[in-house]
Amino acid sequence: MRYLGYASTLTLLTVIGGVTNAAAGEVNLYTSNSEDAVALVLDAVAEQAPEIKINVIGGGSGSLLRRIEAEKSAPVADLFWSSGFSTLAGFSNLFTAYHSPEVDSLLPALQAESAPWTGTNTHVTVIMVNSDVLDGEAPQTWEALMDKRWAGQVTMADPANSSSSYAQLYGIYQLYGEEGVRNLADIVELQGSTSGVYKAVAQGEYPLGMTMEYAAQRYIDGGQDDISMIYPTDGTFLSPEGMALIKNGSNPEEAKQVYDLLLSHDLQKQLFDLTFRRPSRADLDDTIANSGLPLMKDINIIEVDEAEAGEQRDYLLELWADARG
């Protein structure tokens, strides 16, 4: 019965999913990135490695990773691009390490030397501000944000549901300990998902939100004048994202070529201009400065130990639930 099950699974994936193991010269790319970002990659490949044909399967990173897991016995994907390091860690047995020659040009925090993936870009946690509904001066630090006067005016995603929101909670814990967690719990209102936060702030439901730099920048670049963002001066947190080669993929050599390309200077620049996701390369300061975003060296970044953050998760979420009452 079980054998039948697997057999039918495979047949169905082939028939209904429409994708099979990549033929020679082809790379099956599973990606959670938007179509226009993917289009840039396709163009770059067509220009620089015209012999490679890329088949794109798009989707949410969670559903893509679950699909890769389901296909583990006969991998269809060759390359996965991209998801948060902490999410990737939960699926690390699906990946195989590859040391790209480009890795040396990356920011140290994004090289991920000991893990089977490589950083492609990183999110920076910011305070997104909607001046239209803001009463008074916006807080410049986490400490000021956690003041009682902002109670009910700050929103963040539920740390129990979202990994980037948990990273924010862990960062606050690292900076201000248990008391910080309790203070945050007292003033903040929760959204069910990460996207709920920037939407709520952009729509003026809350004046302040804890979210990712790129998300706020989309509104600023789009021309919504009342949106701005603050990089708290007492230190903020990175959530790096990475890509990985799939273990036992059928075309590792071609996939590695695409991997290198995704880390290349030109493509990272184009992707940043399109998506505002901070590149993992260290040599793109000019581009970042041109966009109006501050350079990495001008932001006070708090180092986060991912492993430690993972171990503390149950304890911290319990503390959080308790503080929320």
């Binding site: 999913g17 429409g18 679950r66 699909r67 998902s193 996207s195």
Partner: peptide
């Protein structure tokens, strides 16, 4: 229940609305 590559129109609409 959908898996990557099986998005239907409503699912796509739902995802686009999510990212505003």
């Amino acid at each position: 229940i959908y898996q990557a590559g099986q998005e239907t129109l409503p699912i796509q609409i739902f995802r686009l609305i999510s990212s505003d």
